[in-house]
Design a protein around this nucleic acid. Structure first.
Length: 402
DNA sequence: TCTGGGGTCCTAGGACCC
DNA sequence: TCTGGGGTCCTAGGACCC
């Protein structure tokens, strides 16, 4: 989907079309500015001047989506809001409204599955579709079907999307970026050398900043340069699995099927504080946030009908370093009190002297409530074994906080 | 310009079992 | 006297994606 969050917002506020706008940041300040709906009017009647400007936004956060008008100024996803404000102070800013995006997500995905039932979910704004057995799916290399899907989604939601059609998921994903927004791009196997090999390695789904940096360290910048490397050389430098995988993708090979169903592995809730908090000084505030996260997470689990038995916490310190702890318990649970109790024990095992930026709670090893696997014979858990051992010195002093 | 929230998968060491 | 081989589970961290 093209600039998905921003495009959904423009459906509500069509008066903002064409203006530089970003989605991100907390709710509070922005919400105040939006309490300007004229008497008897609708959201579309709010004057543009009533919307908050990026330059007036003071707070932590990143941009989740920028309109194409905002991108002209060099603003992009994941950019800090403060930096974006320097690039384009007059841009408008709207808070993230995930419930609304999820609504439109369900809608466009339903449109797709009615046309092509084999669809793989890749988050709120992205999917893979298997054209293979869809009637007419091969006409003009898939362009006819792609066009039908685009038109149907636009008709049902008012949203545009970009589609890449290729022999596999790897190439289709890259193809989808060739013509944005509202484009269709067909890539054949025979296009590998001309259209894929000139691209930077970073364009491969799965090669991130770290791998790219390492590749560049070896003088490898493009996918073609990667393809030129010996398979064994790649394995020697990137490990057996990664090296072999890199060799495959550089040659455009990918056998992964389109997966239409999957079960969640974990659920979590986390929050970044408005300011860094200290475990001792801000004890009450932290405790309240901690409890709330556990309650939200329990509610998520219960609403979706899951229970879990691995409970964990995540901290991000002021210096952005991350620490995680988890503990597997014997009985599956979705109970907020139990989650908080175990998560609290996890917190006691992590250093709490330094300023904290983020706190998160996670439940993993999920099972559908009501289909809980039979417990195997009890053996002492790792936690039980650990309990016999005293906490290390750094955590001992703060152990009673939670 | 200090950098969100919700996920998945992989690696690696240690405990434990057969 | 010194020391197997294979397997699973648990835990912590990290890369990556949307």
């Amino acid at each position: 989907m093209d600039a998905f969050y921003a495009s959904v917002e423009l459906l509500r506020y069509p008066q903002l079309k064409g203006l530089p706008m970003v989605i991100g940041g907390g709710r509070r300040k922005v919400d105040e500015a939006l309490r300007n709906v004229p008497e008897g009017g609708t959201l579309a009647d709010i004057p543009v001047a009533a919307f908050p400007l990026l330059k007036d936004y003071a707070g932590r956060g990143v941009i989740t989506t920028a309109t194409y008008a905002a991108r002209q100024f060099g603003i992009g996803s994941a950019m800090g809001l403060m930096k974006a404000a320097k690039l384009c102070p007059q841009a408008l800013i709207l808070p993230v409204d995930f419930d609304e995006y999820r609504k439109y997500s369900r809608r466009f995905k339903q449109v797709i599955t009615e046309i092509a039932p084999l669809m793989e979910d890749r988050g709120v704004d992205e999917v893979y579709i298997d054209f293979t057995d869809v009637p007419g799916g091969q006409r003009e290399g898939g362009r006819v079907l792609a066009r039908l899907i685009q038109k149907s989604i636009l008709g049902a939601t008012g949203l545009s999307c970009s589609i890449g059609v290729a022999p596999n998921k790897l190439l289709a994903k890259m193809a989808s970026e060739f013509d944005k927004p509202n484009g269709i791009s067909i890539v054949f196997e025979s296009d590998l050398q001309t259209r894929i090999w000139p691209l930077p390695c970073r364009k491969v789904n799965g090669i991130g900043p770290k791998a790219d940096e390492k590749l560049q360290g070896h003088g490898i910048r493009t996918i073609g340069e990667l393809a030129a490397k010996d398979r064994d050389w790649l394995i020697a430098h990137f490990g057996k699995a990664s090296g072999a995988w890199m060799h495959e993708v550089a040659w455009g090979r990918d056998q992964r099927p389109v997966v239409t169903e999957s079960e969640p592995v974990s659920m979590s809730r986390e929050t970044t504080f408005d300011r860094d908090l200290h475990a001792v000084r801000d004890r009450a505030e932290l405790g309240a946030i901690f409890t709330r996260l556990c309650e939200q997470l329990a509610a998520d689990l219960q609403r979706k009908g899951y229970v879990g038995k691995t409970i964990g916490i995540k901290l991000r310190y002021g210096d952005f370093k991350i620490a995680t702890r988890d503990q597997t318990i014997e009985a599956f649970t979705a109970d907020p009190k139990e989650i908080r109790r175990i998560a609290g024990q996890c917190l006691k095992r992590v250093p709490l002297e330094r300023p904290l930026r983020l706190l998160g709670v996670r439940v993993g090893t999920l099972a559908r409530a009501g289909e809980v696997p039979v417990e195997p014979a009890v053996r002492p858990t790792a936690a039980g074994r650990r309990a016999a051992r005293p906490a290390d010195e750094s955590t001992a002093r703060t152990a009673s906080l939670f």
